[in-house]
Design a protein around this nucleic acid. Sequence first.
DNA 1: TATCTCATGTGACAAATGTCATTTGTGATC
DNA 2: GATCACAAATGACATTTGTCACATGAGATA
Lengths: 212, 212
Amino acid sequence: MINIFIVDDDPLVSGALKVILENDTDGDKIAVTDVAGNGADAVAKATSQDFDVILMDIRMDVMDGLEAASKILGNKPDTKIIFLTTFLDDEYINKALSVGAKGYILKQDCDGIATCVRAVMDGKTVFAGKVVEKLPEMLNRKERFDYAEFDIGTKEQEMIELVAEGLSNKEIASKMYLSEGTVRNMMSSVLSKLDLRDRTQLACFYYQRIKV
Amino acid sequence: MINIFIVDDDPLVSGALKVILENDTDGDKIAVTDVAGNGADAVAKATSQDFDVILMDIRMDVMDGLEAASKILGNKPDTKIIFLTTFLDDEYINKALSVGAKGYILKQDCDGIATCVRAVMDGKTVFAGKVVEKLPEMLNRKERFDYAEFDIGTKEQEMIELVAEGLSNKEIASKMYLSEGTVRNMMSSVLSKLDLRDRTQLACFYYQRIKV
DNA sequence: TATCTCATGTGACAAATGTCATTTGTGATC
DNA sequence: GATCACAAATGACATTTGTCACATGAGATA
């Protein structure tokens, strides 16, 4: 028998999941033995009881799912937690992985959730296909840096990228069809806007804050 | 009925998988409809036939699984491919994700493979627990760069790190208790060893090849 | 001892870099 | 038409940077 704990602030979701899971017959019987409506509750219950798998929402009041998972896993590292959420958010996915989640499934395609639970019980980790599609870009991701916040225009952005490839002013000028003097002026302006001293600091800034 | 194609250079493995999969009764019946022993064969067969799921080894003669998968997915992007391999290699995992694999399972724990196949049929992606444990570090990894290969010593490494923080020669000299002239000489030497032109290119090199 | 290597340092030089004041041309706005 | 804003360009300047030839001193080796 597989012993499930559902954490979701929407009773409709918990209810639906319970029905789906408990009526699944493709293998060991699954039973939902407890339900919580927020992260804090979840931590309390998971501390006093043992569950085979926890299905948890991420966005919840009082304490969100990621924090709750972190606390639970800090206490019982072998707990298998599957996140079941509506949002396909890079930040969420990254944190879920870091926390050590065993799954990240989207609510919109949670039909096969019973199968997921079984796979997780087998030591596997199950992700929604769309989640995994995002991983490669996340592995070599570019942060979305808010150029506007620093009042930096498109041409200036292009120049920054070229600096970050190691080009000299002359080379940049040639690539951008500008005179070298203009590139210098742009450089000077960008450096001042970003409060940097020279092109090397700009390159560092680029790799540290803009692209990673 | 779920229609499986197994690609593995070891007939014992293919045979064992076939038995495990076809005797599983927890849901739709699973049938292994074809088998191949290397990547090239796999590409040929996957082009002429349609399969629901392809289970593929990575290390194979003639053409490895990753390349084969890439070709197959280039042709039929919706193909669901699960890698089944012995190796927990960062490079493999990264490529598998990039290629668009629906799973990465270790042979040593392939008991639940039928469950995995079903989860993948449901649009999920299934990874061995150990694979996913590696992802967080991969997401913020530091490459281990072989300074020795370029004959770069400890002091030179330290200098490189300082350049990558945007320090000037004078500042580096002060931090390392050297004269500015010495720093310049070191710089010149390092640039030549790495075949770079200036400190900005060195900073770029650092972020692109050394630390990420 | 004589020699060699190596890290450190100096001085000189050309090139690249960043800053600034100023000019020019274009398009928008009044 | 007059004015303004702005991108592009120029020239001058001080500073930083990279290169090179060479000096110095310490430690290793023959």
